[in-house]
């Protein structure tokens, strides 16, 4: 309906001393879409979001929210956005109702309207039973929902969500996803940051990948994933197996050169169809290359990263991706290992 993008950033920069936390990022988020900012911890996602949400001064470049300049008119921008941070920003000493009432009052609602809005939002987010309970007794999921509800009081057209599901259990995570989809159906635009490829995949219309403060890729989740293949075949060769032969066999079957780690005899190769893993295994058996384990994994963020940047996600300030893996994705056994097998067959 309007050509003005919800978010436009040109050459956004944030410096902390000599360190560039955000390094010349361009961004355009269209009205009515869910835009995902994907990257590991410490990539600059939160910093970028905070600059867009007027919470951090912009050191370079410029940003506009619905055409309003963020640096020049922060007060106007604050009337257009709702911000839900990584850690619940609600008052622990107040009840859920009191929190929402307070935020409503602070945004100019009359006392009665603030009360009605609080009631409506608590109902909408399934928190009416906990309305008068102390926030400190809330579960993580309930806090997040209350936090999100608090961002929606004035129905802002743009919502920023900073890692909305980090640390949530799979069920609560699914609920959160549905809630976020609901926001967009109501006409909101959502910009969310996430560490999880599958979250971006599930929710986002478009995604940009950020690494070390720079944007390394942008596109639909499908476009991103095709860069790394739909899934990955991971082979662990038995000690003493002929690695060169194995590579040749894999290449012959899949037409794709495997990424190998010669020291450990590990090789990874993208698969467009998971079924083709069987062809590789049969061919290896025929070539008498013995393997100690095999697995097929959906591409993880790490692999997307590896494909896009040539390095894994564990180069920054620690990945943390292994702490709270989402349901649909491979459960990581080791935070620092870039490959996360789905089904590991021993021998």
């Amino acid at each position: 309906m309007t050509a003005t993008p919800a978010v436009r950033a040109d050459g956004l920069v944030k410096r902390f001393g000599d360190f560039r936390a955000v390094d010349r990022i361009d961004l355009e988020v269209r009205h009515g879409e869910i835009f995902g900012v994907l990257g590991p911890n410490g990539a600059g996602k939160t910093t970028m979001l905070k600059m867009l949400a007027t919470l951090l001064p912009i050191d370079g470049g410029r940003a506009e929210i619905f055409g309003v300049d963020v640096a020049a008119q922060p007060h106007r921008v604050r009337q257009l956005i709702g911000v839900t941070g990584q850690y619940a920003s609600v008052d622990e000493d107040l009840s859920a109702t009191e929190n929402l009432w307070l935020f409503g009052r602070l945004q100019g609602l009359k006392a009665a309207d603030a009360r009605a809005t609080a009631r409506r939002l608590l109902e909408q987010f399934g928190l009416e039973d906990a309305a008068e309970r102390k926030i400190s007794a809330f579960s993580g999921g309930m806090r997040r929902r209350l936090d999100l509800a608090a961002s929606l009081i004035t129905r802002p057209p743009l919502i920023f969500l900073d890692e909305p599901t980090t640390g949530l259990d799979p069920r609560t995570r699914g609920q959160m996803w549905n809630t976020i989809r609901g926001l967009v159906e109501d006409g909101c635009t959502v910009l969310l940051t996430t560490q999880y490829l599958d979250e971006a995949d599930q929710l986002a219309d478009r995604v940009c990948v950020i690494d070390q403060g720079r944007k390394v890729a942008e596109g639909t989740p499908d476009e991103l994933k095709t860069q790394v293949g739909d899934s990955t075949l991971q082979l662990q060769l038995a000690p003493g197996a002929d690695q060169a032969l194995a590579r040749e066999v894999v290449f012959r079957v899949l037409g794709e050169e495997p990424v190998t780690t010669p020291e450990s005899g590990r090789m990874n190769v993208p698969l467009d169809v998971a079924d083709r893993a069987a062809d590789v295994l049969i061919a290896l058996r025929e070539a008498a290359v013995s393997i100690s384990s095999v697995s097929v994994a959906k591409p993880s963020l790490d692999e997307v990263f590896l494909a896009l940047t040539g390095h894994g996600t564990d180069t920054g300030t620690g990945t943390g991706t292994g702490t709270a893996r989402p349901a649909g994705v491979v459960p990581g056994q080791d935070t620092n290992s870039p490959d996360k097998p789905v089904m590991e067959k021993a021998r």
Binding site: T2, R76, L158, C188
Partner: peptide
């Protein structure tokens, strides 16, 4: 979209 951002921008102070 039910939300009209242009109107929302016009409402801001």
């Amino acid at each position: 979209p039910a939300v009209d951002p242009a109107a929302a921008v016009a409402r801001t102070r």
